[in-house]
Every structure is written in C-alpha cells, then in structure tokens.
Design a protein around this nucleic acid. Structure first.
Lengths: 218, 218
DNA sequence: CTTGAGTTTTTTGTATACAAGATTGTTGAC
DNA sequence: GTCAACAATCTTGTATACAAAAAACTCAAG
C-alpha cells in the first residue's frame, strides 16, 4: 500500500471500519498495519488513540486495539439521538434562518427531485446531505452544527442501506418539502417535529431491515 | 512530579486544563511535560491525540499542541446544546422513567435542599449532578446518556461559577421540584420545557457573569 | 534603527530498540 | 486423554535516536 503520513492514517482506518473491511471484534495488528501503510508502529498507535475516543475502536491495555462496530441496539439509540438533534437544529433554525438559506434548501430539494426521477441514488444522497447540513448550519450554533455533522457522518453507512426501501426516496422528498415550508414560515415546533419524524423514520426503516436480515438467517 | 502511566496522562492534563493551570493558547511543551511526568515524549504525544479529539487541545502539524479554552461565544453555544440535550432526556424519560428512579430524584432533591440550608455548596453540587445524571439514564438511551454526561463534564468548571449568584441555589431547587413533578405525571413536553429552561438559565447567568467581569476590566 | 539572508538551535515526526506482560506451545504427570 | 506447569514466542508500552521542519539568532547592508 502507498506510503501515508500519520495525519491520514486515522482517517483511512476510519474509512476501512465504516466500509466494513474490518469486522466487529477484529484486532488491529500494529505491525501488520504498519507494514501495510509503510510506516512504523508509532504513528499507528497515535491514530488508535484518536479512533478510541470516537468510539470506533476499543483500546484494551496490554491487549491491543479492537474495532467496535455498534450493534443493533446502539444503532437504534444513535438514530434516536440523531432525530432529536435534527429536531433541535430545526427549531433553532426556524427562528434564525436566512432568506438565502431557504433558497439553498429549495435548490437542494429541486436537485434531489431530479435525482429521484433519474433514479440516481448517489446524486440523491449528495443533495440530501447538503439539505441536512444546511439546516445544521442555520441553527446558528456552530457547536451544535459540528455535533450534528459528527453523528451524521457516523451513521452514514447505515443510512445508505435504508434508501433502497421501495418508495422511500419519494416519501423522503415530500418530508423535505414540509420541512422547508415550516422553516420558511418560521414555525419552530412544526419544523422540529417534521425533522424528528423524518429522521426517526430512517431509524425505523433500519430496524425493519435488521429484522428482515435476521429472519432470513432463521 | 510523581511517575505516571500513559493511561492517566491524558486525564491529568485534562484536569489541569479544566483547572485553569493552562491558559488558552498555551503551548504544551513535549519535553518539559515529559520531564514533569517522568516519562518520555511517546506517551505524552498519545495523550495529545486524545485531548485533540475532545476539543481541549488543538494539534497544529509541525508546530505542536495548543490548549483551546472555549471562548464566550462557544460556551454560550455549548450551554444551549446542553439545555436541548437535557430537554430531550426529559422528554424521553417522562415516558420511560421507573418508579424507583422517581424516588431517587426526590431523594437527591431532598439532600440538595439540606445542602442549600447548610450553605454547603459542594454538597449541593454533588447532589445536583446525581439528579441530572439520573435523568440522563432514565432517557432509556445509553448513547444519549453518554453524550449528555460528556458535555455535562465539559461544562462543569463553568457551571460551578454561576452557582455563586445570589439566590440561584434556591431558585434551582424550585425548578428541580417542577421537573420531578412533570416526570412523575408522565408529561413529556412539560418535562422537556422545564429542563430546557432550567439549564438555559445557567447559560444566561454565565453570560451575566462574563459581562460583569468584562465591565470590571473597562 | 530596521531589514533580511544565512546559520544555529529547538522542536516535531518517525523509526528503532528494548523491557515487561500476554499468548501459545510443549512436555510430563495423573 | 486431560490438565497443569513451564518455556518459547509474540505483542504491547515506553525510551531513545535521528531526520526534517520551524523558530530564533547573528550579523551585515541599507
């Protein structure tokens, strides 16, 4: 593998964990990975420390680093928190959002709609992300914005799966319209509820997915 | 200074940053701290990585580690998020809380009241923390519980200052009673609003404190 | 007195060395 | 055949060494 600076190692490992290259419980072998990255153990160990704090890796003293993929329960919990965080962003944004941001949201929605019609899942995904990140920003609270973005990123691999549900993209679009409306009319509670339900439904869809996968293996 | 294992170094540095030993912008000198702790640079650098992710330290490549104390604006934002997180905990807890937990909250409040009457600030502080942590837990979402506890810990040094405001402890007690009532009656929105205002007022008090400190220096 | 090129000194980033704990494998007793 | 104790091996945690980048300093020119 190509040579990398230590700054990027944590990021690359993160991608590998998200991407499913490493399974839950896998031990991250320092020397093997060091060889793979073409560096020594030192920068790898520094990367482990970072990954440990964001919960992707568990550092067991004298035993090593183990990847910690969230289980079904933890994932449901994370989706619930995501829904609530987005609701908070929406409530604050309804009071603080700028006119140009409203336009940005409408633009993102229009491009989303186009992606739906073209059955362009990737395009939909990108515009959907822009839509949500705009709302985070318009909460007017950059700490909240960062926290929301952090959790959004962490849930990314799992959110993607549930987009495949039949009709989900169209339904999601309708929800987006309702959210923009509430924000444009400056209705905090309405925007909050619309966003909470919009994200919560993702958690439910995910739950269904998990259940169906489980019943297949029975 | 006494010898320490690397596991504790990050924690100790964190305490020093919270405790105000290091000021905002201070550079954390690797060799000096290594001497102080009686270890080599390696475990210190690993500790820096951890502190960087929790936002206490900024790691500038090829320049070193600098402590990042949140400024007034960032602190206000953090208090706002804390208020909203507690509100979420309250709303969920109103539906999920157990009878024994209600009793725990009442107990903590009673001990809080005793501390107020005895003008025991430390005692008040401890019971107040127990009160809030119980609500986090009763949200029934352990991911949320952890996130709330993390932010609570981060705001600890700043929350403490505003307890000194005259009459704040008594007012806070009354708010606690209202919160328990709403939870006991199973009223989600009422519990959420009571908690949001309870925490938000801390942010406002903090704002007042900052303003008064600033005017003194004029 | 200020400025700027060149040089010295620090300081960071990474590799390597080494010690101590954990794991695995082997042998012998029952 | 199973289990336990011991030995060999591997892995982590930490110290040290060294290279490269940044900062500080020197000194001369304007």
């Amino acid at each position: 593998m190509e040579q990398r600076r230590a700054d990027n190692i944590a990021e690359t490992l993160e991608e590998h964990i998200f991407g499913g290259v490493f399974q839950d419980g896998d031990r991250l072998d320092e020397v093997r990975l060091a060889e793979k990255f073409g560096v020594s153990r030192t920068p790898l160990r520094e990367a482990f420390q970072r990954l440990a704090l964001s919960g992707l890796v568990e550092l067991v003293p004298r035993r090593g680093a183990f990847v910690r993929q969230p289980g079904p329960i933890e994932l449901m919990e994370m989706f619930e928190v995501m829904a609530e965080l987005e609701a908070v962003c929406g409530r604050l944004a309804a009071r603080r959002i700028s006119d140009v941001a409203i336009e940005e949201l409408r633009d993102a929605n229009a491009r989303c709609q186009m992606a739906v019609e073209a059955k362009d899942t990737d395009g939909y995904y990108i515009e959907n992300e822009r839509f949500h990140k705009t709302i985070y920003r318009q909460s007017g609270n950059s700490f909240l914005e960062q926290e929301a973005a952090k959790l959004h990123k962490r849930l990314k691999p799992f959110r993607r799966q549930q987009l495949k549900f039949r009709g989900r993209m169209a339904q999601s679009m309708a929800e987006h319209e309702a959210i923009v409306d509430a924000l444009a009319r400056g209705e905090p509670e309405e925007a909050a509820n619309a966003l909470r339900n919009h994200v919560a439904v993702q958690g439910e869809k995910f739950h269904n997915l998990m259940a169906s996968l489980k019943s297949q293996s029975d």
